[in-house]
Design a protein around this nucleic acid. Structure first.
Length: 535
RNA sequence: GCGGGUGUAGCUCAAUGGCAGAGCCCCAGCCUUCCAAGCUGGUUGUGAGGGUUCGAUCCCCUUCACCCGCUCCA
């Protein structure tokens, strides 16, 4: 399945447009058209309904250690700047990069290590990507650079152990990790992945704020508010859907990596001893949700992060990844990440930014031995009123991309098949096979022909169904053409008023995927559609 | 950010240093009793800016966007 066809259909049918298209578009920004907005709303509403509103908090769900509660939140996009300092985003998203003028490659300034190497009366700082084999790599590169054979290896003198490139002020004697000549690296340049803005009329450092790069922090900083206002007990999940912003260096692949995007996140708070079980539970539950919404098992994988990818405080992180058509064969793109975050986030907002490399977690200090970023000092802990135990909850975070999910459903729905036309000749058909819950339009109503009172009856049915569903009325052109148009929009049901309707108050209801028609009573239409959507 | 490619109607694609064209789609009318039918008529334009030129959609420069590869990816 080619991505171009999907992109083309998205534009033609009104699922997705480039943002500001008449001015040439803006990289990394996309608009949802009339069909797209319905689709995305259905994705978000299905998630909200399944995770929050209709969640059964009385029973122990399959795979869960106990019953649990769910609440919702809707936090602001701009938050107190200290939130991002304590969360780690300020440091993390504030990268310095160096470019190599020779190889055109770009490196994180703090991820290159090197050693001063002297031979043949020349002193050069030879770099390599930071890692376990950096010492070996630097030796090899030194031999190559100075053109010294293995037997004369003593001619090479090393000045000290490898240090980070950030320690080097003058880059003119530095050999880039892939370069043949020295001095090809540019001065480090700042890449800020968080969008900056100013609060208040005056711009200046004092009013500097950031657009949130994730919705999660709004939940952490409101944890106490939710506990105090709802009388809920742990385990408790708090859900939020909302826009986030990341100033991606390279937005690519349609809406997959956008600079403005929407997240559907749950922060699930539980007792530390139970957190592993809950992590397993959420992995399985979220995987099952995508399956329920129509993503087949062979196109969705759960990729468990390896232990060296994990922060030490985390028991696990799993990515749910979909086989997007723009990925190479056998490769998958992330739809959702489910991470065990321990007590890192709540503690950081209490005590101050913790050093994620420390074990056990300790406050990150600055050069003067003071906290690098000060926390709120508020008590975000939990007291179990039955046992009297006090603890800082551990967090499981299922974090999904609403736009990525929507894109996956679009890709999955796109189908080309062949159906006979009125002469029995096979014609190519494009049909969007959305799950009925996700379909932008639930049903279309047609009079078979535009006369004999059929439009009047059809319009009445349309107006009645409209009270409950997003429906579409069309009386123009041949009936076959109208069916095909709805196939492209992914409308699961088409209701046709014909001659018989006028006699016995029945209509036909056509199924998008099978093309089968069933004759039903007009009075029963609402119930039938409702049942089929929920099935 | 680098290298390569692309940019013409809603879509797919022609053509040209001198009035920009087709098919599909769309709209209106006629016809039409179940899967893109037919007939008649109609709407819609060279991504943006600058230069060369009597004249640029075409040549040149800049810019923007998209695609592919690299790089990056919380």
């Amino acid at each position: 399945m080619s991505m171009e066809k999907i992109v083309s259909l998205c534009k033609q049918c009104g699922f997705l447009f480039q943002s500001s298209e008449i001015y040439g578009g803006l990289q990394g920004f996309w608009d949802y058209g009339p069909l797209g907005v319905e689709l995305k709303r259905n994705v978000k509403e299905s998630w909200w309904k399944d995770m929050v509103v209709c969640h059964d908090d009385m029973s122990t769900l399959e795979g869960a250690p106990s019953p649990y509660a769910m609440e919702g939140l809707d936090c602001t996009i701009i938050m107190h700047p200290q939130v991002w300092k304590c969360s780690g985003h300020y440091d993390l998203f504030h990268d310095y990069m160096v470019d190599c003028k020779e190889t055109k490659k770009r490196y994180r300034h703090d991820q290159l290590n090197g050693r001063w190497v002297e031979a043949k009366n020349q002193r050069v700082f030879i770099t390599a990507a930071a890692g376990d084999d950096e010492v070996e790599l630097i030796e090899k590169r030194a031999m190559k650079f100075f053109k010294i054979r293995a037997k004369n290896i003593e001619d090479i003198k090393y000045d000290g152990d490898p240090v980070c490139l950030t320690e080097i002020e003058d880059l003119s004697e530095v050999l880039g990790p892939d370069a043949k000549a020295v001095g090809t690296l540019t001065e480090p340049r700042e890449f800020n992945l968080m969008f900056k803005t100013y609060v208040g009329a005056l711009s200046g450092e004092e009013g500097t704020a950031f657009l949130r790069p994730e919705t999660a922090q709004g939940i952490f900083v409101n944890f106490k508010n939710v506990m105090d206002s709802t009388r809920q007990k742990l385990p408790l999940g708090i859900a939020q859907i909302g826009k986030s912003f990341r100033n991606e260096i390279t937005p690519r692949n349609f809406t997959f990596r956008s600079r403005e995007f929407e997240q559907m996140e749950i922060e699930f708070f539980c007792h530390p001893d139970e957190s592993q079980k809950w992590y397993q539970f959420w992995r399985d539950r979220r995987m099952a949700w995508y399956h329920e919404m129509g993503i087949p098992e062979d196109r969705l994988i759960l990729r468990e992060h390896t232990t060296d990818e994990l922060a030490h405080y985390s028991i696990g992180t799993a990515d749910l990844e979909y086989a997007f058509p723009f990925m190479a064969e056998g490769e998958f793109g992330e739809l959702e990440g489910i991470s065990h975050r321990g007590d890192f986030d709540l503690r950081s907002h209490i005590e101050g930014k913790l050093d994620e490399k420390s074990n056990p977690l300790e406050l990150q200090l600055d050069e003067n031995g003071k906290p690098k970023w000060k926390g709120s000092g508020k008590n975000l802990g939990y007291r179990d009123e039955l046992t009297g135990e006090k603890y800082i909850p551990h967090v499981i975070e299922p974090s999904a991309g609403a736009d990525r999910a929507t894109l996956a459903f679009l890709c999955e729905a796109y189908t080309e098949d062949e159906q006979p036309d009125e002469n029995g000749k096979m014609q190519k058909r494009v049909v969007m096979k959305f799950h009925p819950r996700l379909a932008p339009i639930k049903a279309a109503v047609f009079p078979l022909v535009k006369k004999d009172g059929m439009p009047e009856v059809a319009k009445k049915i349309y107006l009645d169904l409209k009270k409950q569903f997003k429906v579409f009325y069309d009386e123009k052109g041949a009936i076959g053409r109208r069916y095909r148009r709805q196939d492209e929009a992914g409308t699961p049901y088409c209701i046709t008023v014909d001659g018989q309707t006028l006699e016995d108050q029945t209509v036909t209801i056509r199924d998008r995927d099978t093309l089968e028609q069933q004759r039903v009573k007009i009075d029963e239409l609402r119930g039938i559609i409702q049942r089929r959507i929920e099935a």
